[in-house]
């Protein structure tokens, strides 16, 4: 085959696909040995890849949180005129939020993404979480029961 007829781009693609096949067929330990034989800092590479993957998970959670906040904000805008009542004491408010999270674990998951655990929520966090939940109508059952007492 003369050089004039050679399609180097296609040839390079073939080589790279073949090398990808090599990476897939080889065990991770074989690839690690090759990397170290080539003088690569495998420890640093591994650490960097791990951080890259973990940061993608964090980015995903942040987006999910942003989306949940935005949805709450939009719903709250539509129901701003709605009245709601919260318990008078901070202990009762915390207890109410705990009850809501127990009944609706998915809500707890979203609201505690930032704080990691329920215990870490400050009194202000509890208050604002309850206000958002009340605006969204999640406390209607509680409000109804309280008004009957």
């Amino acid at each position: 085959m003369s050089d004039k007829q050679r399609d180097y781009r296609k040839e390079l693609e073939g080589i790279l696909d073949g090398l990808a096949e090599t990476i897939e067929a080889a065990s991770p330990e074989e690839i690690l040995a090759e990397a170290e034989a080539a003088g690569e800092n495998s420890e640093a590479i591994a650490g960097h890849v791990r951080e890259t993957l973990l940061s993608a998970v964090k980015k995903f959670e942040q987006r999910k949180l942003d989306a949940a906040r935005e949805a709450c904000r939009q719903r709250a805008t539509h129901s701003r005129s709605k009245k709601y009542y919260l318990p008078d004491t901070k202990e009762d408010r915390r207890q109410l939020l705990f009850t809501v999270f127990q009944n609706k674990p998915r809500l707890g998951e979203v609201l505690t993404i930032q704080h990691r655990s329920f215990e870490d929520l400050s009194d202000e966090d509890v208050q604002s979480a309850l206000e958002e939940l009340a605006e969204l109508g999640f406390l209607d059952d509680w409000a109804e029961a309280s008004s009957k007492e």
Binding site: I23, P28, A35, S42, I45, A46, R50, L54
Partner: peptide, 18 residues
């Protein structure tokens, strides 16, 4: 991710570069 071995992480890196 935390459980991936050094060898697996290096292989992922090589594959991404490829």
């Amino acid at each position: 991710i935390k459980s991936l071995t050094k060898a697996e992480l290096v292989r992922l890196n090589h594959y991404a570069q490829n």
